[in-house]
């Protein structure tokens, strides 16, 4: 448990090889070793979704993922969602339609929305609510987040 191991994985398309404790949280490694601070910690117990990342096409709470599990994986964080200066449609919709307020849940919420639209390009309201159910927001009351998702896929 307390031994360091080499873990190899890809983050936002870039290959990484790191010496880490195998039980270190992916969240901490992303934030502290890779300086990818867009992934946020809200609760540390998998309830709020602020630390959401995509691993091999699945959204997960990175606060619950030990480094031992990510060997060989491909990880997308909020920093990898936009294509250079070109924002993803979900990001642009969040700006245009009030999907972000304080912004702390936004990286996780955007990734959850991107993942939802990858799996289901034209979700119903019910699909959107359930698709985002693992991500909590305290500012918006969710209405503008739902609208942003709808606008993103209708674009």
């Amino acid at each position: 448990m307390n031994n360091r191991h080499t873990v190899e994985f890809k983050v936002n398309g870039e290959a990484r090889s790191l010496e880490v404790f195998s039980m270190a949280r992916l969240l901490d490694v992303l934030r502290e070793q890779l300086q990818l601070t867009g992934t946020k910690e809200g609760c540390g117990e998998g309830e709020c979704g602020a630390c959401t990342v995509i691993i091999d096409g699945q959204i997960v709470n990175s606060c619950l993922v030990p480094m031992a599990q990510v060997n060989g994986c491909e990880i997308t964080t909020i920093e990898g969602v936009a294509g250079g200066d070109q924002l993803h449609a979900v990001q642009q919709a969040f700006i245009d339609h009030g999907g972000a307020q304080c912004g702390i849940c936004t990286p996780g919420m955007v990734l959850a929305a991107v993942d939802l639209l990858n799996r289901n390009p034209e979700p119903t309201e019910h699909d959107i609510r359930n698709g985002l159910a693992g991500n909590l927001c305290r500012c918006t009351g969710y209405m503008k987040i739902f609208e942003s998702v709808v606008r993103a896929y209708k674009k």
Binding site: T37, G38, T77, D96, A100, G103, I104
Partner: peptide
């Protein structure tokens, strides 16, 4: 008008104290 600091919030570039 869209939120002034919206772009840095949706890209994860906004810096909170723990960042």
């Amino acid at each position: 008008f869209p939120r002034k600091e919206g772009r840095k919030k949706v890209t994860g570039k906004a810096l909170y104290v723990d960042d």
